[in-house]
Design a protein around this nucleic acid. Structure first.
Length: 649
DNA sequence: AGGGACCGACTTTAGACAGCATGTC
DNA sequence: CTAAAGTCGGTCCCT
């Protein structure tokens, strides 16, 4: 409400407002919510990687909803309308301590301050808001109001009870927590979300629960299956989840396709599904509360098992209680080692957030962007700006270290070696490469790895390019399993020149991972069926999507990077490859797939029926197109119209 | 010979943003 | 640094 007041206040004064969130789904949600304000004439816009409207275009909107990275990218492009921005709202501000994405938030805040905009930071899990408010020059507003009362408790196995913080004790029958939770939920007719910390645990627990729950009625079951079909979950996913939803149970994690996730969320919200076992995907953002939430707290990380943070726990506990239906919500911790730990989760404050703008990677990326976008034109200016960061403040206070020295002595020279930045006395300016890299939103190191590897080699195969981009730091964060057995195969591929060797700084495992990603993408661009790919490579549909998305972005970026340093042949090859990755097609279908309404499957069918170019479509006549399987008259008509449009361009 | 219980070695472990130009099957 | 589940292949025993 406070954020909305600030946005509307700015609008009434003729200023623009920006609302920035960590997730695309959250951005969509806010965009829809804010659309209400069109009643008073405010024009609402959205800008994420999914819907782009290039920088200058957004001028027509009064309130713009973005993701953090998108806003950072907009600030770098410096469209003229930025002058008109009166307020920047940063949602889920605690993310500032996230190692990957926190630095982006920090930079957004700095840019906004530089614009003189009012900043509104929002967070429900922040123990040091005073510190952040002071840094941002904001006034702190605290509120503990919550639409539904939250009661927290934990399971004490030794005594076979759940102890709640309102003093209530709940007996656990047979000392079997999940059995008890399921039984009470069935008796009292409420829904439960269980948070596990590993995908396989979420899946196996969902299967166990399904065994304890009677089959639901057939119509409800069919309704759920319909949703999976409507949202376009893959056949293999429906097959896996079928036996669970039959009992009103499902699992939910990022390995599922977007469609399968939507189907689970939607079925739960409409009460068709009673139990969902999820990983922390459901903790942030998605509006899917339940009367009861059960939380497992142990996660394997960095070589051993450790408990999740209080902040993470609070984030998940916050899912308990549905505003329209419940008077209270209950969060139950399932696996504390003793009572002390239980109370620490319940009564403890979330860990104070600290700046993450201290890693070499983050500083490299953002130092380049500051100079490339012209916010900083000299060393002294750079130093002044860095002194405004939270990182500067945190490091000076905790260790007496001045981070600006590190940037100027280590990061800056490295960027100059990469020939992305040049200095003229104390004046700093970007090279063409530096400018390109910053605009493409890639890590400078990614660009250097690509250039170094491709310089001086001829025309490698798609697999070579794909393995290369999969090795870059912008890609290695993608999860991948089952690559250890590929060592021998990878070496022989390397020896026959099919793939690049491990580039300096890339570990053996990252190289093998890259090879497996290369193999997967190579299948994808050769039109192998999605279901077949995920089964043979043992990855989730969601994982495949992430790989495709990332590869499509990075092949495009690689193409532009090659172009900027005169590697023209590679630029052309990579450009073609990026289209092939985006659509999952062989080269001969690139022309057809440009048409709205035609993807990889229909394009192949048309090709087999002798329609191979846009000209063919315009020449053969509607009957022949409508006769092709999966294409009817309506679609054929649309296809012809779209082809005409493309032809006239 | 075939089936199944059992055992030990080995593998794996959360999430999700970004370019560009417009929809997919 | 505080683990646990699944997979795979082999062995042993019974029918």
């Amino acid at each position: 409400m406070i954020a909305e007041l600030a946005l509307i206040n700015a609008f009434l004064k003729g200023r623009k407002g920006i609302y920035t969130t960590p997730l695309k789904t959250l951005a969509n949600e806010k965009y829809e919510e804010f659309s209400l304000w069109s009643k008073i004439g405010a024009k609402i816009g959205i800008s994420t990687g999914d819907y782009d409207e290039p920088g200058e275009w957004l001028d027509k909107y009064d309130i713009i909803v973005t993701t953090y990275e998108r806003l950072d990218s907009l600030f770098r492009l410096r469209p003229k309308w930025l002058r008109k921005v009166g307020v920047v709202v940063i949602d889920e501000l605690h993310n500032i301590s996230d190692g990957e994405r926190g630095p982006t938030i920090e930079l957004i805040a700095i840019y906004a301050l530089k614009l003189g905009a009012q900043i509104v930071g929002l967070s429900a899990t922040l123990s040091n808001p005073e510190e952040l408010a002071e840094w941002l020059g904001c006034k702190l507003v605290l509120s503990s109001w919550r639409p539904v009362k939250l009661i927290e408790g934990f399971y004490i196995k030794r005594r076979s009870i759940i102890a709640f913080n309102d003093g209530r004790i709940e007996e656990v029958l047979n000392n079997n927590l999940i059995d008890h939770i399921v039984r009470s939920a069935l008796n009292q007719h409420y829904q439960v979300i269980i948070f596990q910390q590993a995908r396989h645990k979420a899946e196996s627990m969902a299967k166990n629960i399904a065994l304890k729950v009677p089959v639901i009625d057939r119509n409800t079951y069919l309704e759920i299956i319909d949703k999976f079909k409507k949202y376009e979950a893959l056949r293999s996913e429906i097959k896996d989840l079928d036996k669970l939803v039959m009992h009103g149970v499902a699992y939910h994690h990022a390995g599922l396709s977007h469609g399968a996730r939507l189907a689970v969320e939607n079925s739960f919200r409409s009460g068709l599904i009673r139990f969902v076992v999820a990983t922390p995907t459901l903790a942030a953002g998605i509006n899917m509360p339940a009367r009861r939430v059960v939380i497992y707290t142990r996660r394997f990380e960095g070589g051993y098992v450790k408990p999740i943070s209080i902040a993470e726990y609070k984030q998940m506990a916050g899912r308990a209680g549905r505003p329209q239906y419940d008077v209270i919500g209950e969060a139950i911790i399932a696996d504390v080692k003793d009572e002390g730990e239980g109370w620490r989760y319940i009564n403890g404050r979330p860990e104070p957030v600290k700046s993450a703008l201290i890693s070499e990677r983050a500083l490299r990326i953002h130092t380049l962007s500051l100079i490339a976008s012209g916010y900083v034109e000299g060393i002294d200016e750079l130093r002044d700006l860095l002194r405004k960061t939270l990182a500067y403040k945190n490091l000076l206070e905790s260790r007496g270290v001045d981070i600006t020295n590190y940037v100027i002595k280590n990061i800056l020279p490295r960027l100059m070696e990469m020939d992305m930045i040049r200095a003229d006395g104390r004046y700093l300016y970007p090279t063409k490469l530096g400018l390109t890299v910053s605009r493409l939103y890639v890590d400078p190191l990614t660009a250097i790895m690509i250039i170094d590897e491709l310089e001086g080699i001829g025309k490698p195969s798609p697999l070579y390019y794909l393995t290369l981009i999969a090795m870059t730091p912008d890609f290695t964060r993608v999860r991948m399993v089952g690559y250890k057995g590929l060592q021998r195969e990878a070496y022989s591929a390397y020896e026959s020149g099919l793939i690049p060797g491990p580039i300096r700084g890339v570990s053996l495992y990252d190289w093998l991972k890259a090879y497996k990603i290369g193999l997967i993408l190579n299948q994808w661009i050769n039109e192998v069926d999605e279901d077949y790919i995920i089964t043979t490579f043992k990855i989730g549909a969601g994982d495949l999507n992430l790989i495709i998305e990332t590869a499509s972005w990075l092949t495009y970026a690689a193409s532009k990077i090659c172009e900027s340093v005169g590697l023209k042949n590679h630029a052309n090859e990579l450009n073609k490859l990026s289209l092939r990755v985006r659509y999952g097609v062989k080269e001969e279908l690139i022309d057809l797939v440009r048409i709205k309404g035609i993807g990889r499957v229909r394009a192949r069918l048309m090709y087999m029926h002798g329609i191979r170019t846009i000209d063919d479509i315009l020449n053969v006549g509607i009957e022949r197109i409508a006769k092709i399987p999966m294409i009817g008259e309506v679609l054929a008509n649309n296809i012809i119209n779209e082809a005409k449009k493309l032809k006239n361009k």
